[in-house]
Design a protein around this nucleic acid. Structure first.
Length: 735
DNA sequence: TGGTTTAGAGTTTTT
DNA sequence: CTCTAAACCA
């Protein structure tokens, strides 16, 4: 997908000459070599940050194949992200060429989907089941709550959803959750869970958690299936083991229990997803589960300067219950860490922007050398603002997501309904999009009818279209049902043609065109961009496995399991902004960690219990260890958040770094760094402009100092008209 | 039914 | 402060 990316996380690249096509175990240090060649029996690899674990994993797999210990299709390597899966695949392709194709190198969820599709009949789902994302899942929970009369005010949907999700991650079912429920909200969650489960099954849909739960069910209730996989996978490897939840842990154990050639790689100090059900004890207690396990520690860090590593070590040393390990490096001491105490968050942004400009000049660096991390997304705004003022090109990773846009979700809902007629949530989403006069009351009546008849929603729609509920609704619903039939019957030469024709036929674009506003033209643009995603899929699929489903169902599966992170444009010369969670697994020469204040980082909600605080500390450890050469820690004396100003103490994590590694504290930013603003420009709504970072966009609104610009593919941005690096574009259209 | 207004909520989010 | 979603009115 992004060939340039292959080595991005290759922490070892700096010291080893990587030679494609030739596997050289001699390139590994003794511990790495040990981990790569200890193939028989269980193995726990404790891999510190930047210690070359991906390198070990790929060399180990290559070693297994080269020595004929197993053939490629008998190897299973599980990762957490698509990004690390594709990185590993690329590296394997270079190490052992075509043989890597038959291997299962994929995420947990992708593995589950593959198993579930192969055996869907055994677990009572149709092969064409839909994967619901968090938004679909929340809608379903909402519907369930409405149907049993639970008040959303008293029982907030996110609270119910997270309880259900955590239960699933623990492999706890509705009945068990009900029996352990004490508080009203827990009782409500258990009630919702039971019905949710039923409705999901009726809709032939699974959410992300269900993929794990159902796979576990499959493997425990169908011994033949389990045995087949146990026989097949001679060697199993799991990356980021510290982030496995209980369901994942059980699935791995089931698969590995026969041959016991299980290698898990992880770092307990980098466990930062416990709030999502990740269970750190899975790694801490691996040796209890597998008493015969060998343990290898990768303790040499190849990434960071000695100073940065010392700071990271010092911070994380304050946590208790860690696996004992000391990360060391042969790298030079390097620059001391710069601490900057800003007056407020604007000053903080200004400092970061000016330091970037200074290093760019004095150290001859490029923009892509820099990354800015923050604890919460809300912090990015002010930093963006400062970067815009200084004319620094940047990209935000995470943030507003293309696939969360309403118009994209609408298109996807149509496609889901085409694949899976039982998908009620998607059906309800599109029933009145574009507007066809089917309002809330009609939908509610049809829904009640569906429940009382115990029929699928679409069946009731067909009754309605046939006139069972009068001619008025029939006239509205009839054309919709016809549309569905047509979409499902459509045949086209290519997937792209099929989807393009479907979008056209739905009338979504037609409605947006008749709106004829700048916003609607942006939405049309987004829908067109969606077709680009189809092409992206086609090319991604072109050089991957043949076992995966093809056509529209294959595309929908790929869409459901992909993430926005996959499409991050890494080749571009920009500063990168992201949350610390997103930064895990990446590295940059220069790193800024912003907002190091108590109640921001550590976050107020996690500050007052020790497990929460320890996870925040691990987050700090992850953030610090992303830096190769230079590290900046910034905090602000005052910070306004949600309209109120707070005075936060500097983060306790700063105090945990030995003073000899810190410099500054009161660095004054040079004022000269701020670029001359392009003051005085007048913009009118509808004008086309070009932005240094965001590209071409249309002015949607002008209000005082601010202009709102709708950028192609990026959506709307509020910019300061006198500072933003904007330039008027002569032509009328933005194609 | 559909547009407008107002009320409330706002850590982190690999899939 | 700023975005989203439910209530409200035409």
């Amino acid at each position: 997908m992004c060939p340039d990316l292959i080595f991005l996380d290759s922490s070892t690249l700096a010291h080893v000459n990587y030679t494609p096509m030739i596997m050289r175990l001699s390139d590994l240090n003794p511990a790495q070599h040990d981990a790569a060649t200890s193939t028989e029996g269980p193995l726990l690899v404790l891999a510190g940050a930047g210690s070359g674990k991906t390198r070990v994993l790929t060399h180990r797999i290559a070693h297994i194949v080269e020595n004929g210990l197993a053939s490629p299709h008998q190897i299973l390597a599980i990762t957490f992200t698509n990004k690390s899966a594709s990185e590993m695949k690329h590296r394997l392709a270079q190490l052992c060429a075509a043989k890597s194709r038959a291997m299962w190198v994929m995420t947990f969820h992708a593995m589950c989907v593959r198993m579930l599709r192969a055996h869907s009949d055994l677990i009572g789902f149709d092969r064409s089941f839909t994967i619901y994302d968090a938004d679909d899942s929340k809608r379903m929970i909402k519907e369930v709550m409405k149907s049993i009369g639970l008040d959303e005010k008293r029982y907030p949907v996110p609270g119910i959803a997270s309880r259900v999700s955590l239960a699933k991650n623990e492999l706890i079912g509705p009945a068990e959750l009900a029996s352990s429920a004490v508080t009203p909200i827990d009782k409500a969650a258990a009630k919702v869970f039971a019905r949710y489960k039923r409705r999901m099954r009726d809709s032939n849909a699974m959410d992300f958690d269900d993929l794990l739960v159902e796979t576990h069910t499959l493997l425990t209730s169908c011994p033949e299936a389990l045995e087949a996989y146990q026989e097949r996978f001679i060697y199993i490897m799991v990356d980021e083991y510290q982030d496995t939840n209980h369901a994942q842990y059980r699935i791995v154990n089931l698969l590995a229990s026969k041959r016991r050639n299980l290698m898990v790689v992880g770092d307990d100090d980098q466990s930062i997803y416990s709030w999502r059900g990740a269970d750190i004890s899975n790694i801490l207690e691996f040796e209890k589960d597998y008493p015969e396990a060998a343990v290898v520690r990768l303790e040499q860090n190849y990434r960071s300067s000695a100073t940065i590593l010392a700071a990271a070590n010092a911070v994380v040393a304050n946590n208790s219950g860690r696996k004992p390990k000391t990360l060391w490096t042969a790298n030079a001491g390097g620059e001391s860490i710069t601490r900057y105490r800003a007056e407020d968050e604007r000053d903080e942004g200004r400092f970061i922007a000016s330091e970037i400009e200074r290093l760019l000049r004095d150290e001859n660096r490029g923009y892509s050398d820099f990354a800015i991390f923050y604890r919460t997304n809300a912090q990015s705004r002010v930093i963006e603002d400062a970067l815009l003022r200084s004319g620094t090109p940047y990209q935000i990773v995470g943030g507003t997501k293309f696939f969360e846009r309403a118009e994209i979700r609408d298109v996807m809902a149509y496609l889901k309904v085409m694949v899976n007629a039982a998908d009620e949530i998607s059906l309800k989403r599109i029933i009145n999009k574009p507007r066809r006069g089917i309002g809330k009351t009609t939908v509610e009546r049809l829904e009640a009818e569906a429940i009382s008849r115990a029929e699928p929603f679409e069946a009731v729609l067909r009754r309605c279209a046939a006139g069972e509920y009068g001619s008025g609704p029939a006239a509205k619903v009839g054309p919709f049902v016809e549309l569905l039939d047509e979409l499902r019957a459509s045949a086209a030469a290519t997937l792209r043609d099929q989807i393009e024709a479907a979008i056209e036929r739905t009338g979504l674009i037609g409605e947006l065109q008749s709106e004829n506003t700048f916003e609607s033209s942006g939405r049309i643009e987004n829908i067109r961009e969606f077709l680009g995603v189809v092409d992206e899929y086609a090319s991604a699929r072109a050089f991957s496995e043949e076992e995966a489903p093809v056509g529209l169902p294959g595309f929908m599966e790929w869409l459901a399991l992909r993430s926005d992170l996959d499409s991050v444009a890494e080749g571009s010369e920009t500063v990168t902004l992201m949350t610390i969670h997103t930064a895990k697994g990446l590295e940059f020469p220069v790193v800024f960690i912003a907002g190091l204040e108590d109640s921001i980082f550590p976050h107020a909600n996690s500050m007052f219990d020790s497990s929460g605080l320890e996870e925040e500390r691990r987050l700090a450890y992850v953030a610090i260890t992303r830096a190769r050469e230079r590290l900046y820690l910034t905090h602000a004396r005052s910070r306004s958040l949600y309209g109120t100003t707070n005075y936060n103490a500097p983060s306790r994590f700063i105090a945990e770094i030995p003073q000899e590694h810190l410099s500054g504290g009161f660095v004054t930013p040079p004022k000269t760094a701020v670029r001359t603003p392009v003051a005085g420009a007048q913009y009118l709504t509808g004008e086309v402009v070009e932005h240094k970072v965001f590209g071409v966009g249309v002015i949607v609104d002008v209000a005082g100092e601010k202009v709102t610009v709708d950028f192609k593919g990026l959506g709307r941005k509020n910019l300061l008209k006198d500072f933003a690096p904007l330039r008027k574009v002569q032509t009328g259209g933005s194609d």
